[in-house]
């Protein structure tokens, strides 16, 4: 059971994020919601990197005589997560700057009032 807890956390984070995006009115909270979804997905990726009894993927510290032990953990998920975090930062910054400009033009952060484009 305990090994499923992280996955439950992932799903919960994604659902919380979606809830914030769909039901919260403040633009900043929507941005926070997206950020939570992103953290959830990142957590998911990190979790996939865990191998029980794994060896760090450093070739110099391998046991002598072995070249590629099967228990060596591939660093792929970590690399993916780093990339994803970097992208997330860019998206976050862009979204927040847009929110700032929108506040200047519309005078509000209520998502229900920011809808001149409709129908």
């Amino acid at each position: 059971m305990i090994e499923y807890i992280p996955f439950i956390a992932v799903v919960a984070m994604i659902l919380i994020g979606l809830y914030a995006v769909v039901f919260r009115r403040n633009l900043i909270k929507i941005v926070i919601g997206i950020s939570i979804i992103e953290s959830g997905v990142n957590l998911f990726l990190i979790m996939l990197g865990y191998r029980e009894g794994g060896v760090a993927p450093i070739f110099t510290s391998l046991p002598p005589g072995t070249t590629y032990p099967p228990e060596m953990v591939l660093p792929v998920p970590q690399a993916l997560t780093l990339t994803s975090i970097v992208i997330g930062v860019a998206v976050l910054a862009l979204m927040l700057s847009l929110v700032m400009h929108i506040y200047r033009k519309y005078g509000t952060l209520d998502v229900r009032k920011i809808r001149r484009l409709k129908e």
């Binding site: 995006v21 862009l94 979204m95 920011i114 809808r115 484009l117």
Partner: peptide
């Protein structure tokens, strides 16, 4: 334009 961009990025 800002509104459209925000919708797009979300």
């Amino acid at each position: 334009a800002l509104e459209a961009a925000f919708k797009y990025i979300v």
